[in-house]
């Protein structure tokens, strides 16, 4: 029995190794791969934006890509090494949490290109893409202050981590830039990763901020934001979306969205790698590069007056030219 089992296992091993061995040989030229983080590729936010970028690349170039969604912190390194072994030529790692894994694996495979979104790893074969979320948040903070009638606005973060504080600080500065006396309520949804996907609590927090007088809330909280936007709609108040353009979700009460063009970053990483123009180093995407911005479309056109748009646009130019400086929480 035991011998039979060992035999079967060996045969199996050979069969699978055979199958694997043919993989990289045929995909010798170009093989893209992406490692999503714990949120999963359909988180309606950060990872999903990356998924959209990758899908756009696939439909335009006809090249399929490998993908993996990690479920625990140990899998990040393992997943990247697996991708590398199976012949991936460019690997995109989503999220700051993957930085340590990228650093380890990129050293082991110096010929493979790595693109890391939201964090910096200083290696020749790593392209680090980071966004100036504080600049985008500054603009939506202005929008909130301009739209507020009560002089009180709210911020609802996801999990309490430095990145979200960076959003919050930019938002507060933007609001105070318009109205120095404005009151900004801040709440974080939680301290565990479930805070990224807790719409019920998001809604509760939004309602409590409305009760205290806020009439615009900005949610930087992934899937939790869905509850915040719903609460704003129910209460007839305004909400601001994040990462993807979420204006379409509740036309009439979605003031705007702070868009972070993760999709473009992913698409470009794949495309440039395919064309041979991919370069290692840092890519810092702020307002000047259109990496972040505030969304204006048919769904929120009626909520943003010409005067508001003009003031925000002026501030955008001032930030790009350096006349107005937004504090980066991470750089403090």
């Amino acid at each position: 029995m035991k011998k039979l089992f060992t035999g079967a296992l060996t045969a199996l091993a050979l069969a699978v190794t055979g199958a694997l061995a043919t993989g990289p040989a045929s995909a010798d030229d170009f093989s893209p791969a992406i490692v999503f983080d714990m949120g999963g590729k359909f988180d309606k936010s950060f990872n999903e934006a990356a998924y959209n970028g990758a899908e756009r690349f696939k439909s335009e170039s006809g090249v399929t890509y490998r993908e993996f969604e990690v479920t625990n912190p140990s899998q990040r390194e393992q997943a990247m090494r697996n991708m590398a072994r199976r012949g991936a030529t460019v690997i995109i790692a989503m999220g700051f949490a993957q930085a340590a894994a990228v650093e380890t694996v990129a050293k082991e495979f110096p010929d493979i290109k790595f693109t890391l979104i939201d964090m910096v790893v200083d290696l020749p074969n790593v392209q680090s893409v980071i966004f100036k979320e504080h600049e985008g948040s500054f603009l939506v903070g202005m929008a909130a202050a301009l739209a507020s009638k009560t002089g009180k606005v709210g911020f609802i973060g996801g999990m309490d981590i430095p990145l979200i504080r960076k959003f919050a600080l930019g938002y507060v500065e933007g609001a105070k830039y318009v109205n120095a006396d404005i009151e900004v309520y801040q709440n974080m949804t939680g301290t565990t990763p479930s805070a990224w996907n807790d719409p019920t609590k998001g809604g509760e927090l939004a309602r409590s901020q409305f009760d205290r007088g806020a009439d615009v809330v900005y949610a930087a909280a992934g899937g939790t934001g869905v509850g915040v936007y719903q609460a704003a709609k129910d209460a007839g108040k305004l909400a601001i979306g994040v990462d993807s353009n979420q204006n379409y979700m509740h036309p009439g009460t979605m003031l705007t969205s702070m868009v972070k063009r993760v999709d473009v970053a992913v698409y470009e990483a794949f495309m440039t790698a395919k064309n041979g123009t991919w370069q290692g180093g840092f890519k810092i995407l702020g307002l000047a590069e259109d990496g972040v911005g505030f969304a204006l479309d048919k769904y929120n056109r009626d909520l943003v007056s010409a005067d508001m748009e003009m003031k925000i646009e002026a501030a955008r130019k001032d930030i790009i030219s350096g006349k107005v400086e937004v504090t980066d929480y991470m750089a403090q």
């Binding site: 949490a97 309490d160 991470m330």
Partner: peptide, 25 residues
């Protein structure tokens, strides 16, 4: 379990984090 998670997040974000680091490590 929740208190542990909250405590760890607090310690990591406020005390043990390597300065200049995005992620709380």
């Amino acid at each position: 379990n929740f208190i542990a998670a909250a405590l760890m997040t607090y310690l990591m974000v406020e005390i043990f984090i390597e300065p200049g680091q995005q992620s709380a490590e």
